[in-house]
Amino acid sequence: MKEYFKNAWSGLFTVFIGMKITFKHLFVPAVTIQYPDERLQLPERERNRLYVNMDDCIGCDQCARACPVDCITIETVKGVPGEDVGKTSNGKRKALWVTKFDIDFAKCCYCQLCVFPCPTECIYMTDVFEFSELKRENLIYDFATLSLQEREEKKINYAKFEAEKAAEKAAVKAAPVNKPVDNQELPKP
């Protein structure tokens, strides 16, 4: 009998204790934030979407080789002599046109391994993490700054240059006596 009343009382009493706790929480300021309006400070070394500063990229392909999942595809074309490929920010002259620099973020595992080998520190992590897409193809980002026409042009230019050189070589071969072989006209790296 005593047990019974004790049970009844403790049942009721514990409900009141619980209600006291929840009532207190009614006045605790919310711990959540209104996400798209307010954002949390990201950690200092967060790893999100990569960005490539193409002004500095020399097309050395080191990042692509470092990538464990092969999601960076780089194609380069040598600049023909007399053409100004541009300079990096620390004043070095570039030698290669980067005609393709695709990073497939659907494959990227955000390991940051591509960032370290870059000699010009032009590939790095940004704080952008909202880039979902409905189609997987849209996650392939094209970083190359040349327009499509320019890319074709550069390729054709170089092919032409090669062909000219080959023709010249053939000519030299055909008349070996007159002209000695010299490498002057090869593009300087």
Partner: peptide, 13 residues
């Protein structure tokens, strides 16, 4: 709103 504030959230905003 009551449920949200009891759980330290904000509810519909």
């Amino acid at each position: 709103k009551v449920s949200a504030h009891m759980q330290d959230r904000l509810g519909p905003m």
